[in-house]
Each structure stands twice: as C-alpha cells, then as structure tokens.
Amino acid sequence: MAAQISAHKTTAFTNPPNYALTSHRLRRTLHASTKQPIVLVACGSFNPITYHHLRMFEIAKDFIRQNTDFEIVGGYLSPVSDEYKKAGLVNAHHRVKMCTLATEQESTWLMVDSWEALQNYQRTAVVLDHLEYEINTVLGGVSTRDGGHRNVQIMLLAGSDLISTMSEPGVWSHDDLDNILGRHGAFVIERTGAALDQTIDSLARWRNNIYPIAQLVENDVSSTKVRLFFRRGLSVQYLLPASVIDYIERNNLYPDDGSCTEKDKDKGSESGEADITSSESSNVRGTLGKEMTRLSTN
C-alpha cells in the first residue's frame, strides 16, 4: 500500500544562478489515477557514475511496479557539492556532466538535478524538500487522466550501506531522519557487505515507510573501485557507460599513477585486477562506507 504524504509546507529555496530543474522526462500525467505518484532521488558523489548507480533505479522500478501502489513519474541523480571536500572528488561541473551523459544515453526516464552540486553543502533532507518544492509548487505536481491533480511524493533511493549509517549515533540528526524516512520514505537496495534486515530493524520507527529490495544479481561495482582501476591503468570497460569513460579520458579526471606496468596492462586484468578483488576489496568497501557516512551528516 502506498504511504500517504504527511502535511508539510515547504518554503521557497535559494537557487544557484541560472538554475532550473531539469524536467524534460518528468511524466506529468498518471497512467493510473488510483496510484500515488512518486519521484526517486539518489544522492551521492557519483565520482564517477557507474552502471550500478543506474541499475539501482531499474531494480527499484521493478519492485515498485510489482509490490506497491506507487507509480514512478521520474527519477533524479543529485551529485553532492564540492563543499563535501572529500579527497579525490572531481569538480561538481564534471560530475554533473558525467551523470547527464549517462542518463541521457543509457536511460529513458532518469534525469540529473544540479541544485545540490552547484552550491554549498546541502543535507539529504534538504535536497528532498527542494525537489518536492520544485515539482509540486513550481511545476504544480501531476495530473490524472480524468482531470484531477496529485502531489508527487519524493522518495530517497539508496543502498543498504548508506542506510545502515542512519542507525549510528551522532551521524544523522533525528529531525533529518524523521523527514527523510518518516515523511518522504526510502527504497533501500541490498548491497554486498551491508546487512539489509539488520539495518531496517534498527530503524523500526520508520519501518512502514522503508522499502527493502533484494539485489537478485549481485553487483559490487563502486566508484571507489573504478577510480582505483583508472589509477592503475586498468580497463573500466562495461563498468560505466562508454560516453562517461570517453569524457573522463578527454578531461584526464582520474590520472594513471603508474602503479600498473605495461606488462600488466597487456595481460588485461590478470595481475592488477585480481589484487584489487582479493586483498583490497575490504578496504575499498570500507572507504565507500566512510564516504557515504559523511554524506548528509550534520
């Protein structure tokens, strides 16, 4: 059953210069007037965007269609601001561009919202509120086929590794959790190394508005690993869209540090890639966990 949007009035937001919400793929009319329209929003570094980020939306889309009374009318990626100040984070302009290339060429319904990326650091709760304001107040929500009007529910899409940080004391404020999970709601995609059931149990207060989704095909690709591949001069083909790879190479965003020899490169991934997936895999996951913990922390 679709959750109801709680009463909440959102005031206008300050927008970056020349900002306008990208909405060319936002569907403005519901197919089924009995369903609750929703927009999925994924917040993150996207440094760089990978096929796993795109795949998360498709996993959620299947689950929503088969198990809920929601109807998706759009999906957004919201890259974090440069004020996040994580080591190795490339400029927001590049990350927005990479996300735009990926969504425009690999999807028919996903879009990029640059509002968060082009200003000071913004908490996830504020990003969701901003999109709610833009879609429901500025654009006027969506229509039903019989001429009615509906407000759109903005819902977070995240991996279980990010959601698990929400139960850690001092990481997220209670008010932000109540806003994100209680008012907006979240779809949580299972990720390798992050216990999904345990995570949901620790957030029992908002259980009715959290939708856990099993990952039927295991995918452990991360931006952290992709950057490591670039630094070692290893192939990243089929880990992220070709247009994004081309953009990265043209702009030299993740330069090769020379740690992979030409001999290793000629072998494909016989040597270097095996090292990454064995001895360094736990360190990479740990780095990703810390990265997402810092995201949206007060």
Results as ranks from 00 to 15, higher is better:
T14N: 15
N18Q: 13
N18H: 11
Y19I: 04
A20R: 09
T22A: 15
R27Q: 15
R28I: 14
A32W: 03
K35L: 15
V39L: 12
V41F: 14
I59C: 07
I59Q: 07
I64M: 02
Q66M: 06
F70W: 04
E71P: 01
G74K: 00
Y76K: 01
Y76H: 04
Y76R: 03
V80F: 03
S81A: 14
D82F: 11
D82K: 01
K85E: 13
A87W: 01
V96I: 06
M98E: 07
E104Y: 12
Q105Y: 07
S107M: 03
T108M: 07
M111Y: 10
A117M: 08
L118R: 02
Y121C: 08
R123K: 14
T124L: 10
E134A: 14
I135T: 10
N136V: 06
G140I: 01
D146N: 09
H149I: 04
V152M: 08
Q153C: 10
M155T: 04
A158H: 01
G159A: 04
T165H: 09
S167T: 07
P169S: 15
H174C: 11
L177H: 08
N179P: 04
G182L: 08
A186F: 15
A195L: 08
L196K: 07
D197N: 12
Q198A: 15
I200E: 06
D201W: 12
R207I: 13
N208G: 09
N208A: 11
N209S: 15
I210A: 02
Y211C: 08
P212T: 07
A214R: 05
V217F: 10
V217Y: 15
V217C: 10
D220E: 02
S222V: 06
S223W: 00
V226K: 00
R227Q: 00
L228S: 00
V236N: 00
Y238H: 11
Y238L: 06
P241H: 03
I245L: 05
R250E: 14
R250T: 06
L253R: 04
D256P: 10
G258Q: 02
G258F: 10
E262Q: 15
D266S: 14
S269M: 09
S269N: 07
S271Q: 04
S271I: 12
G272W: 09
A274G: 14
T287C: 13
L288A: 05
G289N: 08
R294H: 13
N298A: 14
